[in-house]
Design a binder for these strands. Structure first.
Lengths: 147, 147
DNA sequence: GAGGTATGAATGAACG
DNA sequence: CGTTCATTCATACCTC
């Protein structure tokens, strides 16, 4: 039954994972740290964090470092003002909660007696009644110059 | 259960949406833009493009962004098949963890035997199937001060 | 109805 | 630090 070692990485079938895949616990911890105000942990911080995460599964400092980098960039990109940069988008989701960059001194990760508040629901279900799709009549003008 | 909704994604079958599905017109436009040489449209470009596509159906900038990303990557991937050599990454990069094996310094925070495993499953999340974590020592006491 | 293919969506890793 | 590449998952869609 023990197919493949119990490496902390692979989690799927036959997939040669070369990529770290954080578990829910690890993700939670990271999110908490991020929410605490931690944005760019130093090498020392990273080491400690990875040590903690390591308990839940194999993880390297590299992963932690990348995670923070990506998370920060992602958050920023999602709420970035219109600029002349090849950034992301901003159309329907731009509700940024004014999060004061206040580093909490003490953060607690409650393992019990806590209602799950983390809701990751971002899938908008807008089923359009496609009874008949009449060919829309917009004259298409394809020009890059226009953009 | 009449849908009645006149706004949404699905354009073909009565499939409940969840995913954006570009129409022929939208696809055509995108393809033309891509053929024009546009590979990574900026935020402005994306916005305009989505505005155009929006005429044919609901579409968000996010979709446009993803489309270009995927299309480029896919084209490239399809054009790079003669690589019979399993190119493996040289693990000699590691620019973020130039750190020797130095872990478990003075970490002491896995105590307590409070057994309370309350983990909820997300219905629409990736299969982060952390199959059977042998041991879960989760009373987590996190403190930034500790870091 | 099950399986395969195509494609959108998400995220980790890395470049500049 | 912001952007881009690469890998993977999830789902739509088509075929059998």
């Amino acid at each position: 039954m023990g197919e493949g070692g119990t490496s902390g990485f692979c989690r799927r079938s036959g997939s040669k994972c070369g990529r770290w895949n954080p578990t829910a616990e690890q993700l939670k911890l990271l999110s908490q740290l991020f929410a605490s105000g931690l944005r760019t942990p130093s090498t020392g911080q990273i080491r400690k964090i990875s040590a903690l995460l390591s308990f839940y599964g194999h993880v390297e400092s590299k992963n932690v470092f990348y995670w923070f980098q990506n998370h920060k960039a992602r958050e920023r990109r999602k709420l970035t003002p219109p600029s002349s940069s090849p950034m992301f988008y901003s159309d329907t989701d731009n509700r940024v909660a004014p999060e004061p960059e206040r580093v909490m001194e003490t953060l607690q990760l409650f393992p019990v007696g806590e209602s799950s508040e983390a809701e990751e629901l971002r899938m908008h279900a807008h089923c359009r009644d496609d009874t008949a799709e009449p060919v829309e009549p917009p004259p298409l003008d394809l020009r890059l110059s226009f953009l």
